[in-house]
Design a protein around this nucleic acid. Structure first.
Lengths: 209, 209
DNA sequence: CCACAGCCTGACCAACCGGTCAAGAAAATT
DNA sequence: AATTTTCTTGACCGGTTGGTCAGGCTGTGG
């Protein structure tokens, strides 16, 4: 394989280091917020000199913006499984499943999003007003259709969406609190149990079971 | 009324200024996190010189700790109505009601709590391990009793509690996101609708309706 | 072999931060 | 009125932060 032996091309170096920096930044921003995070700490965690960070990301805000945007992308794709579902049991069930898995694998991303929204969304306000709003109205219509078809009880679609976001993201954002009460990190079985509990309670709560 | 004419006593001055500082601090900590908040900004918002803050609260951490503790107290009292209830409809319904009202009236407090927990709870870790854990096991037993009495479906009590916390606090922590999607602040009617939606979905979700 | 563009980094800087302190004003106590 | 205690505040300080920059390094194309 000449591919592995060949020294990395310039763009590959760039991509590699950007990934390194973004991973470190996500963790630091999640644990300390924008104001509490320092470029030095991110640099140390990424194993690079601080000046190198500013070569790839001119300012702290640029770096932060990229982290938030990357998370937003992941979140949007989580609803793909919801769309082609015949009814709420499959659609909302799959959405809960997808969001719980994201909470488990990208807890830091979820936290950065929470930080950003609590901060009154100075960076992604336009995303909220355009992309997220469009996404929301689309799912509201989908839920209204399911209600009209008699597949679920006539709940308020928007508050159902809030409940879905709140319950699933809670396992990421408040993971430390849950782990403390659980006396340790959640195991595979614990996560399965959590997902099943959320699915059961919500699906029964909307009269789909 | 001689009470209002009389100059304030020593302790009254202290209490007045502490309240002023704590209110400002709650807001600033909620919007910027611990690291992003500055004593200068809190001082300006409280209308006091910065040095005066350090007279009442020696360090930034002391001030932050007081803010978090005050919130914790409010939260604990929210469950009082849950205890003497005959069943889940009244008990959990009243708990949702109380927590939704706290989310509306103390949104900043809820946010500071969220910040603290996401920050791995460096200040209130001992509270989590002692007071909150004891509180939780108590309510778990209560829910288990209701299940044994056939008043609700056999759900996992801990995940039910997480769902209650997540859904109610979401309206405070993610209030900005909700207001953006709602194209403005929630009215009295909106809040009533939200509370009813949460109550209905959760109570039906646990098979209590 | 050279030249050039992309990459790397130690040293540095102005701005800001939490916290201190001394000196005095105001209030309560005697 | 004298004294003691509490409260107030401008000025100041050491340490840290985000960001800069000149100069060196490295791999690629010609």
């Amino acid at each position: 394989m000449t591919d592995t032996a060949r020294p990395p091309r310039r763009t590959e170096i760039r991509q590699h280091n950007e990934t390194l920096i973004l991973q470190a930044a996500e963790k630091v921003f999640a644990e300390a917020g924008f104001g509490g995070a320092t470029m030095q700490l991110i640099a140390d965690m990424a194993g690079l000199p601080k000046a190198n960070l500013h070569y790839y990301f001119p300012t702290k805000e640029d770096l932060y913006r990229r982290v938030v945007q990357d998370i937003f992308e992941i979140w949007l794709h989580a609803a793909d499984s919801m769309d082609q579902a015949p009814g709420p049991i499959e659609g909302i069930g799959a959405y809960i499943q997808a969001k719980m898995e994201i909470s488990r694998r990208h807890p830091n991303g979820s936290k950065v999003w929470a930080f950003e929204v609590m901060h009154r969304a100075p960076v992604i306000q336009d995303y909220l007003e355009t992309t997220l709003r469009a996404w929301t109205t689309g799912r509201v219509r989908l839920i209204e259709r399911w209600i009209a078809e008699g597949q679920m009880a006539p709940v308020d679609p928007e508050h159902l969406l809030y409940m879905l976001w709140a319950t699933t993201q809670h396992y990421a954002d408040f993971g430390h609190q849950i782990e403390t009460l659980n006396a340790g990190p959640l195991s595979d079985v614990d996560w399965q149990k959590a997902t099943d509990s959320v699915k059961t309670m919500i699906l029964r709560g909307i009269g789909a079971l």
